[in-house]
Design a protein around this nucleic acid. Structure first.
Lengths: 197, 197
DNA sequence: TAGCCTACCAAGCACTTGTTTGGTTCGTCT
DNA sequence: AGACGAACCAAACAAGTGCTTGGTAGGCTA
């Protein structure tokens, strides 16, 4: 029996199916019947495994973000220079796009809407932590002389953040480019610019 | 009687209200009752002005894109250098984010979903034109020596496109930064990089 | 073999959704 | 005065929504 992704239990398999559909069509545009159809069962049967449709996307986003932050925290605690940490964070993010493509896509598309519910308050909290981490690294990079001193840190932060994560819209895992290659090119553009020098 | 935006007819006023709500919550998350409530009428009354909810978003996106392309075509037909044209297109895009904020936000959030319907086939068509324009300018810039010769044009195109349009998520018309200022900073980062040189 | 558990079905419920229909108000123009 | 049209109301409808309930097939274990 073919299974979705790396799922081992039926529950994980269903969650992976839901993740794919949420990512493709958006959370609100995906019905529990869509998920059930894709899994070959009836919609009511999903409720044997999950409390609600919201609980599914909650579990997807929360577990993904927890895993991501383990890596971010390790980078932040390392003894590399600010610029190196910045590069590490970018690479970690592209790895996340590669390995948790659906989750990132859901986050990109639906986080703004989901964030309006109490249940997903942690999304906003993580956003704050993310902003603190990146702007801190940028400021340190400017202070250490590794980055240009005329940078508007806030604007560069938003530039960086959006540039990295929005790549989920075109990047396809298993395609021509590895996440490492994409990260290299992005960092090269970002650090050196595209102008002929 | 206060009116939304620059609307002069009731129809335009309703369309502006719908645009704001679509942009804030997404198309699917906005009900016709939401729109009607915001306008102070009953949901059925909307159908005196519009054929359907889809027709509303259709009109918003189509008219916005037509206006945008008038400007793009003028830039493409100008006698400036490839790099200058590239800068002009970026500036025109940030102007669009400033002046048609809701429409851009709707496009960013819902185009992928809406594009699956026949009615919105023009969205995909415009995407192709957009890609042709930008990759063409990038290739010309490389050929003319204005841009680095080791650029992966396809990747830089996606980088540019996403970087510019995703700014709609944080840019607020009437805030501290004018669209021109944002464009200047974005272009500076893009062309020169953020590394201390 | 009896009990139990996982996974599922069959049917439906309460609610929300976009949309329709027939009628009403009210200002404008002849 | 009368006709007309733009704007809106009141009420409903059919389809779709997330979710619930009671029941069942079949494998595993004691």
């Amino acid at each position: 029996m073919p299974r979705e992704g790396t799922a081992v239990t039926r529950r994980e398999e269903l969650l992976a199916i839901a993740a794919r559909l949420f990512a493709e069509r958006g959370f609100k545009n995906t019905t529990v019947r869509d998920i059930a159809d894709a899994a070959g069962i009836l919609s009511g049967s999903l409720y044997h495994h999950f409390d609600s449709k919201e609980a599914m996307v909650d579990e997807l986003l929360d577990s993904f973000q927890q895993e991501l932050w383990v890596r971010y925290d390790a980078i932040a605690a390392s003894d590399r220079t600010p610029r190196q940490k910045l590069e590490d964070v970018v690479r970690a993010s592209f790895d996340a796009i590669d390995q948790h493509h659906s989750e990132v896509a859901i986050f990109q598309t639906d986080a703004a809407y989901l964030g309006t519910f109490d249940r997903f308050a942690y999304l906003e909290e993580r956003n704050v932590r993310f902003r603190t981490l990146w702007t801190g690294l940028l400021a340190e990079g400017v202070a250490s002389g590794e980055l240009r001193s005329d940078l508007d840190v806030e604007l560069v932060y938003r530039f960086l953040r959006d540039t990295v994560w929005v790549a989920v819209r075109w990047y396809r895992p298993g395609g021509d480019l590895t996440p490492g290659q994409v990260a290299d090119q992005y960092l090269h553009i970002l650090l050196e610019g595209i102008r002929h020098g």
